[in-house]
Amino acid sequence: MSATGSLSVRKATAEPRWVRWTLTAVGLGFLFFFLGLPLLAVFVEAFAAGMPKYLEALADPEARSAIWLTLFVALFVLPFNVIFGVAAAWAIAKFEFRGKSLLVTLIDLPFAVSPVVAGLVFILIFGAQGVFGPWLAAHDIKVVFALPGIIIATLFITFPFVARELIPLMQAQGKDEEEAAVSLGATGWQMFRRVTLPNIKWGLLYGVILANARAMGEFGAVSVVSGHIRGETNTLPLHVEILYNEYNQVGAFASASVLALLALVTLVAKTVVEWRMRKETETLDAALPPEKTE
């Protein structure tokens, strides 16, 4: 289009200008009403009664303990997801074995299961009438309606994220580099630290960012297993629910704004990592000779 100057000639493979403008307007309008306005509303509602009330709502001991609990659970779950994600991706991407596609499907399972069903499952196992219920009660161990239940439910919900990011990435990278490392005498750990990890670090970080956002925001599954004990087993999303149901609009939105801020940080981090990943593939593509197509 740029070379045509003042002539109003349209490329045959582009839409007429009025179509482009209409579609852009419709698309942006839709995003504004469904994404932009809600995001704006969270902060407007949170500050509706002024800054002092906002800070007061966040200084509330119950809000404080909810924030700490949410951060603690997210941090606790992180290493489990990383270790599983790397192990699963290593086995799936670098080796051939029977039942691989079934395994990949099973890893996706927690995405398909309703969070409420996920929560219920752990009530059936660890709850008072559950499989291990009597044994746990006899040994005075609390799982459901306590911290362990929240952690287990979060582990279930965030299970696929890291593996899902790493599997296609490691498949695309192939195994030549690792094989070279091993044949030159590297031990398994050396190969992993010097070759694999640098190759997958951005993908790994990307998966961790997504898993972390979900861990901090999970509501359905955690709501079933937490028991909603104030100041003890209330995560920040559950705290938001309780305040909202008590018609404490400012309090609910003050806590919600913390979560929305975390969501914005997630989006920025995600965009930066995506950008880094794209740059890395581009430099890699430029450095390598063009691959032959089969």
């Binding site: 994404l35 925001g217 509501f219 979560l259 969501a263």
Partner: peptide, 13 residues
Amino acid sequence: ALVDLPFALPTAV
């Protein structure tokens, strides 16, 4: 980047 907001924003919010 905003398109991913529903992935990142907790459902309760």
